[in-house]
Computed example of a mutant assay.
Amino acid sequence: MTVGPHIGPLNLCVLGDFQVARDGALLDLPPSRKTRALLAYLAVTGKAHQRERLCEIFWDIPDDPRGALRWSLSKIRQVLGEDECALVADRNTVALKVATDYARLLPLLKGDLSLASTEELEAVAGSIRGDFLADLSLERCFEYEAWRAGVASEVEIAELGILRELVGRLAGEPRRALPLARRL
């Protein structure tokens, strides 16, 4: 099974089904969808979040959402392994700094695609394996779902723009342009 572009020792692939790879090898992920969704959310947003806010987004149960968050963070640390220091958590906040395929797409979301190289556009187009976090919907977590749907729309619009730009550039090279045109 192939993964998205290799960016450092640990790479989270969110442009399609969620995958985590270390040096190109896929890692086993926790069975909990919420834990995987939390990992993806922290990685894509790339900023510190209040623990209380994360509990509101992911745990609507009255039991012990802070305990559930602690459990999920312990499972995320297991996935991160030697990159465990990428997860920064204190009493109030949680942040995760890891590479994602989304981060490579981000500059192209609002930028002028004509300024990007063909190779860069092809690499980003190749990293899009499907809808954003296609396998991580959480129907009962409405705020998470709204965030996921919003980012998915941005990714889809960016992908269409990238594909159009590439098809135009590669018009004289039908073997390279045809697979991209089919994706459109």
Score class of each variant (00 low, 15 high):
residue 1 M to Q: 14
residue 4 G to H: 10
residue 6 H to D: 10
residue 8 G to C: 10
residue 21 A to C: 15
residue 23 D to I: 08
residue 25 A to H: 13
residue 26 L to M: 08
residue 27 L to Q: 12
residue 32 S to Q: 04
residue 34 K to T: 03
residue 34 K to H: 02
residue 37 A to Y: 07
residue 41 Y to M: 13
residue 45 T to H: 08
residue 45 T to D: 08
residue 46 G to W: 04
residue 46 G to Y: 05
residue 51 R to M: 11
residue 53 R to I: 08
residue 53 R to L: 10
residue 57 I to W: 03
residue 59 W to K: 00
residue 60 D to R: 14
residue 62 P to R: 10
residue 63 D to I: 11
residue 64 D to C: 12
residue 73 L to P: 06
residue 75 K to W: 01
residue 76 I to Y: 05
residue 78 Q to C: 01
residue 78 Q to K: 06
residue 82 E to Y: 04
residue 88 V to G: 00
residue 91 R to C: 02
residue 93 T to S: 12
residue 101 D to W: 11
residue 101 D to M: 10
residue 101 D to G: 14
residue 101 D to Q: 10
residue 102 Y to N: 13
residue 106 L to P: 05
residue 107 P to L: 09
residue 108 L to A: 09
residue 109 L to H: 06
residue 110 K to N: 14
residue 111 G to F: 10
residue 114 S to A: 15
residue 117 S to M: 07
residue 118 T to P: 02
residue 118 T to F: 02
residue 120 E to N: 06
residue 120 E to C: 04
residue 125 A to G: 03
residue 126 G to D: 15
residue 128 I to V: 15
residue 130 G to L: 11
residue 134 A to H: 11
residue 140 R to Q: 14
residue 140 R to P: 05
residue 142 F to G: 09
residue 145 E to K: 05
residue 146 A to P: 00
residue 148 R to P: 00
residue 151 V to P: 00
residue 153 S to W: 01
residue 158 A to D: 06
residue 161 G to W: 03
residue 162 I to C: 01
residue 163 L to A: 04
residue 164 R to K: 12
residue 168 G to D: 12
residue 171 A to R: 15
residue 172 G to N: 12
residue 174 P to H: 10
residue 178 L to Q: 03
residue 178 L to E: 00
residue 181 A to Y: 01
